[in-house]
């Protein structure tokens, strides 16, 4: 195995925990909201905890609650979850080459816990040209996973007393976190190239809006992200 020197701050499991901390509040807000929504969708504490532990996909879990309330068939729900979570395929394709030299089992464990947010933190680290270790990535992933499950349980425990987490603005944690993660990534890309990131973002925005008219929003996200990759990939580096 190749010995790669890692940057201080991106080496140990503990470093990974530290890198995850900025996103922890977001996970807590969203997971807590999910716990409340789950209980109010007639699921019990065990079921919502299990859902967070084995499905582990924020937006898909909210969608599942909505579909359960609407009495959707089992196949209907599973198919929808597949589409909502299919974007992970693209993120895993982007992240996996960085772990080629690690064992198969380690690769599977990294992939299993990859989320939008951990992928974003990982990508910013790559954009900053920092060298990171497998242990760092594991620390990042595991912290997010545990936070998500704990937040779900906490939300589930108060779910019987609160019907509507939206009045506290908690659902907005998702949008706020995406906004913060996007801006961090955008600013880093701008330091490398002043024009390209703007073209990429505009092409994603326009294609997303058009796609929302044509297909489901989960497919619209995937297609518009691919359009962004295409625009970024074919443009010259100037």
């Amino acid at each position: 195995m190749k010995e790669i020197k890692t940057d201080p701050g991106y080496t140990t499991f503990r470093d990974g925990i530290k890198s995850c901390l900025p996103t922890v509040l977001g996970y807590l807000g969203i997971g807590f909201s999910f716990g409340i929504v789950g209980i109010n969708s007639h699921l019990n504490l065990l079921e919502i905890t299990l859902m967070s532990a084995i499905v582990y996909g924020g937006s898909s879990q909210f969608v599942m609650c909505g579909l359960l309330l609407a009495n959707t068939s089992i196949t209907g729900i599973v198919m929808t979850v597949f589409l909502v979570n299919l974007r992970h395929l693209l993120m895993s394709m982007t992240a996996s080459p960085h772990f080629r030299d690690e064992s198969l089992l380690k690769n599977i464990s990294i992939g299993s816990l990859l989320t939008d947010e951990s992928f974003a933190v990982f990508s910013t680290t790559v954009a900053q040209k920092k060298h990171f270790s497998l242990r760092w990535m594991e620390g990042l992933n595991v912290t997010a996973y545990i936070t998500w499950i704990v937040a779900t349980i906490l939300g589930g425990l108060v779910g019987n007393f609160i019907a509507n987490p939206e009045q506290f603005g908690l659902d907005f944690a998702l949008t706020a976190m995406f906004a913060g993660l996007f801006i961090t990534q955008f600013e880093w890309e701008l330091t490398k190239n002043q024009k390209k990131p703007i073209y990429v973002v505009v092409s994603v925005g326009v294609s997303l809006y058009l796609m929302l008219f044509l297909v489901s929003s989960s497919l619209a996200v995937i297609i518009s992200a691919l359009v962004g990759c295409f625009v970024g990939g074919v443009m010259n580096d100037k």
């Binding site: 394709m93 955008f186 619209a220 992200a225 962004g228 990759c229 970024g232």
Partner: peptide, 27 residues
Amino acid sequence: FLEYLPLSILFALLLETVFNAKAGHLA
């Protein structure tokens, strides 16, 4: 191409939460 995935997908996810969308209708 995938080098631009983080930027693209984060922006797409952000925008998606902003819109009320239903296929066949303008978001």
